[in-house]
């Protein structure tokens, strides 16, 4: 890129300021739905109202301003990470004591996308897109890995990019709602859910952690420490594991599972008949 990405627009900052103040004043509310109760809280309103404001048809924001907003988002979550870090220092021994759970939850983060995603992708008829779509949560570093190995125009590259786009648009909102519903089932300890929050994406992790803290306010600090810890490990190991383990493993499993679960092409079906 020649030009430095712009991060400045008074309009964007002003909108955020108003969104923050208004949504913080609205506070926490519970919404009962058929499938369970959903916890609504300031950052969720900010996300939803902001999204509506940026719908192109409404012409409130220009495309350039949306881009600036995305650029700011890319660095803003680091303040949140810094704050979580300052909460982790005093609890460092507590984190070390939970070394085994921390390592195993990490395995869950890495393998979770593949274990659940790949079989379902094949069952609904995806081909090699499934590899790119399910080998990781497809954030920026993962996209770089895929395009390096297969090129971004490949089927694998399209799969990864699709999940990236959906995640950017709906990841935080979806995970927040999912967290509400799962937490209310009362089968998991808040700390386990906190570790699950460390998915390796700033905004998604903030949304899940925020939901948990709103549901379990008396355990706010421990939840922040454990989701911060899990997220740090995911970020630290993520890229390397992705290159050396996740991607080769997904490719291997694809080759094994595709003949069993994958839908056959029309030609192949004809061949079988004749």
């Amino acid at each position: 890129m020649d030009a430095k990405p712009s991060m400045f627009s008074w309009k964007v900052h002003l909108f955020v300021l108003v969104l923050v103040c208004v949504t913080e004043l609205i506070g926490v509310h519970e919404l009962g739905l058929g499938i369970g109760t959903i916890t609504l809280f300031p950052m969720l309103y900010a996300l939803i109202i902001g999204s509506i404001m940026s719908i192109p048809k409404l012409k409130i924001l220009k495309k350039k301003e949306m881009q600036i907003s995305a650029n700011i988002l890319g660095i803003s979550f680091m303040l949140f990470i810094a704050k979580l870090g300052t909460m982790m220092g005093p609890q460092l021994m507590e984190l070390f004591k939970s070394g085994i759970p921390l390592l195993l939850q990490e395995a869950g983060h890495i393998l979770g996308t593949i274990i659940l995603g790949l079989p379902i992708a094949l069952l609904i008829g995806m081909k090699r897109e499934a590899i790119g779509a399910t080998f990781s949560i497809d954030r920026e570093p993962n996209l770089a890995i895929i395009s390096e190995k297969y090129s971004s125009d490949s089927a694998e590259g399209r799969g990864a990019l699709g999940v990236y786009v959906c995640g950017t648009l709906f990841g935080a909102l979806y995970l927040s709602l999912l967290t509400s519903i799962i937490a209310k089932l009362d089968i998991f300890h808040p700390l386990s859910l906190a570790m699950g929050a460390g998915v390796g994406s700033g905004s998604m992790m903030a949304a899940v952690t925020g939901t948990l803290v709103t549901i379990y306010p008396d355990q706010a600090d421990t939840i922040a420490v454990f989701s911060g810890g899990a997220n740090l490990i995911t970020t630290l190991l993520g890229t390397y594991i992705c290159v050396f383990i996740s991607l080769p493993l997904t490719e291997f499993l694809y080759n094994k599972l595709n003949p069993i679960l994958g839908r056959k092409h029309k030609n192949e079906i004809k061949n079988i008949k004749t």
Partner: peptide, 27 residues
Amino acid sequence: GWRIVVISFVVYTGTFVISTIMAELSF
């Protein structure tokens, strides 16, 4: 396409829920 949208949600569910299960079991 609809497939990739469905799989996106499955992928995010997978990483969150399976790591939560792993954490719960190991705790």
